[in-house]
Write a protein that binds this DNA or RNA. Structure first.
Length: 753
DNA sequence: CTGTCCTCACTTTTT
DNA sequence: GTGAGGACAG
């Protein structure tokens, strides 16, 4: 039983064994944090604590799943009974159990961000406000911030300070929108992500018996990634832990990268103030990365002011230096990465899954993907548009949501006329107005439209047919398995047919996605315990109960295993790879241009870079492109300031051969801002062609005041020239296209007299 | 009420 | 380059 303790270093062992009372584990990157968490839980259960009395909270489903699997490996199936999951999923579960106490039906809908934004758009429109000022995203994040700080709509409306703030940002009617938003959510029996936490707080605050019940239940509470908790989560944890005080939080302030969504690094910084008797454990030995990587990462994070002191070190070898590669364009950056992966695979028999390509924004994946495809390197993109966010999936899911909860307004609006059934905008607007006037849901209006004036007879019968269909399914939710019912809904609604008849490649793919969702339902339904034949156990409501909280990362398939991973740095947190490429190391991209004006935001970007570096076990490549496609045209960029922050002794600058060779091919696209270069048959041939071309225009002739002609922009005059050699850049005022900046080495300019 | 064309905003990160 | 949403005609 005590075996596993031997697998731990002294500070890890202490952190595992100190189970009683509050404790904080500060875990440097790669220091075996997950190991400590899982062993701690295993240790608790091993010493007689019931799994039902343990609550372990994480931020992603993936982290929860991984922890569960690791505990199961140590202890066997009894580990399954631990309360383990994301904040959102655990408390959604509790809210469904306690729904009567908060006046919600048990099968309330969870709105995702898109639903929330749509609702806000609708409200802004109804209030006849300017949607350029009250942008849905901005309004939602304002509401979200309020909720995460436990400020209700009522409190918000009565707060003078907030009122002033909203006046300053020219949004004096924010409070009104917030209030209407909550009313509509209530009428729709819906909650957004923040509500799940907010309502949990209300529940625990206003219902002492409920609080007592869960305090008693959760004798031991563990929180992973504590540095990423927001105020709302912080208070929930504090309340639940108040009785037993067996609270263990694990985190690393240097890896706090979610302050933009309300995470408060202060929660971890002030833990010892909240729990003066708290034990502090520091895990400082890094087992993951080479010395070069660990030291470089330390040097980076040392530039930040806000941090808890901690010395991460490693026994591992020096390893290779961090390589820094400059390329001319983003396409070339992609080729460089693909070629490096290819040659590394050749040289060291590395598998695809040992590589990760990390970037700041999802939009950067394109050029990388293209290059990987060209080199036949299998890859998988993590994040981005998730399966559940695809149009066709959202539509089918909306039908399911509506069947479970007909008051779900966003679901109703999405499908009431899809596939088309002649219920148009005019009718929908009338229904919305009637619903608002009568303080009720849209569903209640269309259920008896004859009570409300202005809706014609033929429309009424169309509405009745729709209502009957949904009602019909609603009555039999628990009579069929999720698959049987889901299948019937897909065909009766016309969704299946709609996409089946669409034979465009897009339509075919949408149809396949529908089938995939139905397959998921089938798998789910197959879990049916066959001893009880009479009643299906795996019904649609069960399937749907947490689908809004799922993301793609949660159901990885086997065939995706040996693939190069492409993801944002945020998505890479908690993962590790032998070889890491961090691409787009450019000013205004990483750090993001939105962050460079404030110190705290810049520090968060720096922590993000720290996270990226520390994902690597063996090698790190940093690449940056001088020209990059953004918003459809080429922009010039400077290398990221973070590169300059890297200590010389850990790095190796490298503008090596592959770079020069590729330059020619990408210069092609860079200048014409036209379709990406089609992949060519013979690489060498093309580059020689382009080089020949560029040598024919003698850029040395170009100087200030000279008239020039450009293939695409036509005639113009050179205003100024800056930079030298390969980086000479000219500002040219074109007759038809105005001023443009062009790199002379790419621009094919002809001097005219 | 439906379909098409055009404009424009988008690119921070996620439960 | 892309996708969503609005304007307008049929």
């Amino acid at each position: 039983m005590q075996d596993y303790i031997k697998q731990l270093n002294p500070s890890q062992a202490e952190a595992v064994l100190g189970t009683e009372g509050p404790s904080m584990v500060l875990a440097g990157a790669g220091s075996g944090k997950t190991r400590v968490l899982t062993y701690r839980i295993a240790h608790l259960i091993g010493n007689g604590v019931s799994p039902f009395n343990i609550l372990a909270l994480t931020f992603t489903n993936k982290a929860a799943k991984e922890m569960r699997e690791r505990i199961e490996k140590i202890l066997g199936p009894q580990a399954r009974n631990t309360w383990m999951g994301t904040f959102h999923s655990v408390f959604a579960k509790i809210l469904r159990i306690e729904h009567l106490k908060i006046n919600f039906p048990a099968d309330f809908t969870i709105y995702d961000t898109v639903d929330s934004k749509n609702l806000i758009k609708a409200i802004v429109k109804e209030l006849a406000l300017d949607d350029k000022i009250y942008k849905s995203g901005v309004v939602l994040s304002r509401i979200s911030t309020a909720k995460n700080n436990l400020i209700s709509a009522e409190k918000y409306s009565n707060d003078e300070h907030i009122k002033q703030e909203d006046k300053m940002t020219a949004k004096p009617r924010m409070a009104e929108i917030y209030t209407m938003y909550q009313n509509r959510m209530l009428k729709s029996s819906a909650m957004d992500f923040d509500d799940l936490l907010f309502k949990t707080n209300i529940l625990l605050k206003d219902q002492p018996d409920v609080l007592l019940k869960y305090q008693h239940m959760f004798k031991y509470i563990l929180v992973d990634e504590y540095q990423d908790t927001n105020f709302s989560q912080y208070v929930i944890v504090k309340r639940l832990a108040a009785a037993h005080r067996n609270l263990c939080v694990v985190g690393d302030d240097a890896q706090s990268i979610y302050s933009f969504r309300g995470a408060d690094i202060g929660n971890i910084l002030s833990f010892q103030k909240d729990y003066p008797e708290a034990q502090l454990y520091k895990l400082e030995q890094n087992y993951r990365s080479s010395k070069n990587i660990v030291n470089a990462a330390n040097a980076i994070i040392a530039n930040n002011k806000d941090q808890i002191h901690k010395t991460v070190w490693t026994d591992n070898g020096d390893g290779e230096k961090i390589k820094i590669i400059k390329t001319a364009t983003d396409n070339e950056e992609g080729s460089f990465v693909a070629k490096s992966i290819f040659s590394e695979k050749m040289n060291s028999q590395a598998q695809n899954l040992e590589f990760a390509i990390l970037y700041r924004t999802n939009a950067q994946s394109r050029s990388i993907e293209e290059a990987l495809r060209k080199h036949n390197i299998p890859y998988k993109i993590y994040g981005g548009l998730s399966f559940y966010q695809r149009k066709e999936i959202k539509e089918l899911i909306a039908y399911y949501r509506l069947v479970l909860n007909p008051h779900d307004e966003e679901a109703l609006k999405r499908v009431i006329n899809f596939p088309g059934r002649g219920i148009g905008k005019t009718t929908i607007d009338k229904v919305i107005i009637a619903a608002n006037n009568n303080e009720t849901s849209m569903w209640n209006i269309i259920s008896s439209p004859n009570k409300y004036p202005g809706i014609g007879d033929s429309t009424q019968s169309k509405l009745a047919a729709f209502v009957d269909m949904i009602n019909g399914f609603h009555k039999v939710i628990r009579k069929f398995t999720a698959y049987d019912l889901g299948q019937q809904i897909a065909s009766a609604s016309g969704i299946s047919k709609e996409y089946f008849t669409d034979k465009t490649p897009e339509g075919v793919s949408r149809y396949e996605n529908i089938q995939e969702l139905l397959n998921g339902l089938k798998h789910f339904s197959a879990l049916q315990e066959d001893e009880h034949f009479e009643e299906p156990t795996h019904t649609l409501d069960k399937f749907m109960s947490d689908i809004a909280l799922l993301t793609d990362a949660d159901n990885e398939k086997d065939e995706d295993k040996d693939k190069v991973a492409l993801m944002t740095i945020h998505a890479a947190k908690g993962l590790e790879f032998n070889h890491v490429f961090i691409v787009g190391m450019e000013e205004n991209l990483f750090p993001s241009q939105l962050s460079v004006h404030s110190r705290t935001e810049l520090e968060e970007e720096r922590r993000l870079f720290y996270v990226a570096l520390t994902r690597a076990k063996k090698t790190v490549h940093l690449t940056y492109a001088q020209n990059r496609f953004r918003y459809g045209n080429v922009v010039f960029s400077e290398p990221s300031r973070f590169i300059a922050e890297l200590n010389e002794e850990y790095i190796e600058k490298n503008t090596n051969k592959p770079v020069v060779r590729v330059q020619a091919s990408s210069s092609h696209s860079a200048e014409f801002a036209a379709p990406r270069p089609v992949i060519k048959s013979t690489f060498v041939k093309l580059s020689s062609v382009v080089q020949a071309k560029s040598s024919s225009n003698n850029s040395a002739d170009i100087s200030e005041g000279v008239d020039v002609e450009h293939m695409r922009f036509g005639k113009g005059k050179v205003i100024s020239i800056e930079g030298n050699d390969a980086n000479r850049k000219a500002t040219i005022d074109f007759e038809k296209h105005g001023k443009k900046q062009l790199l002379l080495k790419f621009a094919q300019l002809k001097v005219i007299n």
